[in-house]
Design a protein around this nucleic acid. Structure first.
Lengths: 247, 247
DNA sequence: TCAAAAGTGTTTGCAATACACCCATGC
DNA sequence: GCATGGGTGTATTGCAAACACTTTTGA
């Protein structure tokens, strides 16, 4: 099969624009990203809508074919950069999905990643090949192309596991946040209501939070104190692979 | 490049023998397995020695190229079957490794898996293309081909994590085992000495063990009681994704 | 003054820890 | 009888869980 024709049949590569795709990509290996954000006490997922190709108008995880000149684990960073303009995003590899017929017209193995970002930090860009980009509540994910719904489900399971032992929740929060913000975040991800007093005691005991001695005066009720997380302590917990049992 | 020539340059596919490899394999995607066993209170890793190709005489993880007609996650099961004759092995996907130059003569992304087996259960077979197969203590792993040492390291990190929350340790034990066997297993994997009385109390409290009312009379000291694990309780713990805090 | 969320301590119970000696067996 | 690991119980401590009212603010 002529490589160029092969590429044209799907135009799956929607975030990276390349002059001549066949020269740059490996067409049987792709990368897909579950990008999570947190706003209004809700966990959200970033999806794109295909603007061309056989999957036109269908929603999908942002992704791309593996570039010939790029380390595999650099790919999701690149996809994120194109989509959000962000460079310092938390990304973890979820795993490979390679069932025979996960893509019905060609054998493609995809390596899935999940990313956690603070929604306020950037403007979304509608990438090459996409007609739309949007955040979805995780309980309102539409039907996605290929096995992307399965990938989303596995991503969620993984995050729920990871958040128990790594302080990754903070990746989803803005620089300044309230104790209630964190509590709602943990409640949303774990699905468990937490006791406010116990939660505050535990999270403060970790020493991971710095009280900024500021309050958020924009709310129509008692102004809550603002915190930031201590980067050093955060790194320590992240490396040790252990976080306090919050859930 | 002629596909047949391409295959001949490395003969990496050492566990699966195929009449005409290029018709059956996808040569830029491979599968590698870290196969762990436990004997003499030591965690061991199964390695093979290449018997041909550019990596001849070097030690490596058992692996193969992805077969065109096989789901990705079926591949490690197949590799295990060829190598050990075993069908019912515990296998988990570890992740994908895809640095640009991890293989110096071609771009290959590998999906790594780890497997846990009870060493007593089978006879090792030296596969097609291998000159040797052997168990290595995990603190005496030789230099391996490609990035296989890195894969082994990541496998170990993963197992040390997984064993904390899943009852996977039992996969490494024979059908009948003593409480000391399990304790040594947990100590070996965690690297932490455990208190015998506390350990026994906790593991018995899970209800996962069945006292067989038999003893092992082959030892030159007090005959220890033999246990088996309760398959139902085991499945329950495995599904729930949570195990008692033993470590 | 009302609504809405922020913020704060104490008591209780369970579970983890620490700890040392006798037992059974083969040689 | 001795060396080797098997097997057993209790007391203490620390941490997690349960629990309700006052405070602050803006509207």
């Amino acid at each position: 099969m002529d490589p160029q024709t092969e590429i044209d049949i799907d135009n799956y590569a929607i975030t990276l624009a390349q002059p001549n795709p066949a020269d740059y990509i490996i067409s049987n290996i792709s990368v897909d990203c579950s990008i999570f954000g947190f706003e209004d006490s809700k966990l959200k997922l970033l999806l794109i809508q295909h603007g061309r190709g056989p999957m036109i108008s269908q929603w999908a995880l942002p992704g791309d074919y593996l570039a010939k000149d790029m380390d595999l684990n650099t790919m999701p960073i690149e996809v994120l950069k194109r989509l959000t303009g962000l460079n310092d995003v938390y990304v973890e590899q979820l795993g490979a999905f390679g069932d025979l017929n996960r893509v019905d017209y060609r054998r493609v193995v995809t390596i899935a990643y999940y990313a956690l970002i603070s929604p306020r930090k950037f403007e979304l860009k509608i990438g090459e090949g996409a007609s739309n980009v949007a955040w979805f509540d995780i309980d309102q994910i539409p039907t996605l192309i290929f096995d992307h719904n399965l990938i989303v489900q596995k991503s969620l399971e993984r995050i729920r596991q990871d958040i128990k032992i790594h302080p990754i929740g903070f990746e989803l929060l803005p620089k300044k946040f309230t104790l209630t913000n964190i509590q709602r975040l943990y409640e949303e991800i774990s699905g468990i209501k937490l006791d406010t007093r116990n939660f505050r005691r535990k999270i403060l005991a970790t020493g991971i939070l710095t009280n900024l001695n500021e309050v958020d005066s924009t709310v129509p009720y008692r102004a809550p104190a603002l915190f930031a997380f201590d980067q050093e302590k955060y790194n320590k917990y992240k490396e040790e692979g252990y976080f306090i049992e919050l859930i």
